[in-house]
Design a protein around this nucleic acid. Structure first.
Lengths: 211, 211
DNA sequence: GAAAGAAGTAACTAGTTAGTGCATTATTGG
DNA sequence: CCAATAATGCACTAACTAGTTACTTCTTTC
């Protein structure tokens, strides 16, 4: 008989995955310091002991959550297939993708914020992150070169600055949408506001790179 | 005789100020959840009892620190005197000011990050912030209008989007400089890197608004 | 089908943390 | 100079929190 009838059967992989998902939520919501291990256990419907069994400590769990988050966005980026269209279109696609990813995965932003509050001390220990980052950086290198060859991009642009700027104009808007809505006295999270922002961002980047 | 001879004389104002300064540091370094009230008391060379006497609770203290931080940057902005120069120069001056302010007052960024993690629930209670924000928003309104009249800015720019973008390209770079230095495999905090970034940002904004 | 090991649980601990009760000391206005 | 008021200090507590001990239950393999 199959073991899937009663979900009470033991499954280390699934339990681990449930803990990771719960931890991601909790860390994203409260940051590393504000997150509660008991809360993660409850949300994951796992015993707290399991967290220490699989991940060792709260900090180690945070590191795994963070690595998975980076892995996820970098993997999605690789799937964009930016080589089969004009460089300017590819760049626009990347700007829209980045925005959409942040919108759909708000935990990514809060996790990265939390990690920077801790001066990237968990990311520094990671072997995985430099590897996948190199590919991501190379992507923009090639895209800018191609744009110059196609005559649509100006010469001498620093790929890192462009990458940072694309992230910045989306990330900042979203991470600071709560204080921003008060400062600018308008609901920055309204669908129309979000739609207006991504169009503005596309325009900003196009003007930035234009020949 | 003056009371200033021995600093052991009681001075409510100074004690309050010392607590505020210490709290700003502690909250900026560890966030609201990570900050320790005992640590603030020690740093302020004040008894913990004083914190509760003057500020009521950790959360109330955080709110005051945050309000002061916003008040400080908005006050500095008002002193820029942007009306006595061409609009394009004024805009560049604002971009450089914003960058320099973030660099010199890194606590501002971390405090705002922390407040957004808490969905701006402290800022929402503030009466002061909407007032000083309105002036700030009006400044950009006028600047953009003037630039259009001078023929250097394009028509139809949303002042809020421009304000957000100016903040974003500086803020994001600085708040994420730790993870960024790993992802891009270069020291984003090096003096040359900082100098390169502000020039890039000036260029980005000029191209964004150019007629 | 039994031994071995892996998955899971409950109750506990040692240390930490925000917040207080109460007594004491300085300052100020009459 | 003396009340009244405000500033300060000490010692405490109640609740919380990361991490653990000691155990039971299930699964797999030979």
């Amino acid at each position: 008989m199959a073991t899937s009838d009663k979900t009470k059967t033991r499954d280390a992989g699934k339990t681990k995955a449930r803990i990771l998902a719960a931890a991601k939520k909790e860390f994203a919501k409260h940051g590393l310091a504000g997150a509660r291990v008991d809360e993660i256990a409850e949300r994951a419907k796992a015993n707290k002991r399991m967290i220490y069994h699989y991940f060792g400590s709260k900090e180690d769990l945070f590191q795994v959550v963070l690595e998975e988050a980076y892995l996820d966005i970098r993997t999605a980026e690789q799937k964009l297939d930016l080589d089969n269209m004009p460089a300017m279109d590819a760049l626009e696609k990347l700007v829209r993708f980045t925005w959409a990813y942040y919108l759909k995965n708000p935990e990514f932003i809060t996790l990265v914020n939390s990690e920077n509050l801790h001066r990237a001390r968990h990311l520094k220990k990671s072997k995985l992150i430099p590897e996948i980052s190199a590919k991501f950086v190379g992507m923009m290198d090639e895209l800018l070169d191609r744009g110059v060859r196609e005559g649509t991009f100006r010469l001498g642009l620093d790929p890192t600055q462009v990458n940072i700027t694309i992230a910045a104009i989306g990330y900042y808007y979203l991470t600071n949408r709560f204080t921003g809505s008060i400062v600018f006295d308008r609901d920055l999270t309204a669908p129309e506001a979000l739609a207006a922002r991504i169009e503005f961002n596309v325009e900003t980047i196009k003007r930035l790179v234009a020949a």
